[in-house]
Amino acid sequence: MAARYLFNAFVLASSCITADSLAAGPMQHATQSPAVAPQPVKKNDAPVNADAAALADFKKRVDDYVALHRRVAKRVPPLKETNNPAEITHAQAALEQALSAARATAKPGDLFTPAVRTAFRKVLIPEMKGEDGHDTKAVMKDDAPTTVPLKVNAKYPESATRPTVPAAVLMNLPKLPEEVEYRFIEKHLILLDAEAGMVIDFIPNAIK
């Protein structure tokens, strides 16, 4: 478990490292031993690995989506605290429809690109192995809905449960802004717009 966590932490931390930050110079280390002193990195070195680059790309795509969400949200009735539940359902439906229209050409893989899917599976699959993995899968199966359509821009069914995302899994995945959530529907991972109740993208068979 610890080794897995370290691997995941490395991949995720690496995803925050850009070519520019690498080019800025060597990181400061506590040790002064010349034998381990880091060498300057050349300006055009690529990000540390393909998974890190994919996750950095994913973050950008999520940020772009959230920027769209926020722009669209300004044009529809606001989701705000109210005594009238009709206002909540009306605002949610309006946001979902407006977002769906604004990304009418969206397709599977727009956020979860093939490279991102590979990187996610590398993080997720070890989490499902062994005794801990058995527990994780049990939690994800518990009250998991089966009626959620795996379709970009699909409305999350109102009567479907919101399956629990195990904290250990959540903490190993890239962090998301407030508007967006991960949810597992059986073996599939969806990226959900939590406010609009809409499927943004998905990874089929994200876990085994």
């Binding site: 989701l79 705000k80 605290e81 109210t82 005594n83 539940p85 909540i88 949610q92 518990d142 009250d143 109102e158 449960t161 919101r162 399956p163 629990t164 959530e181 939590a194 406010e195 109740g197």
Partner: peptide, 13 residues
Amino acid sequence: GNHDDTNQRLYKP
């Protein structure tokens, strides 16, 4: 709960 839409947070009561 797992049966609740997160937008319930907006319902003042």
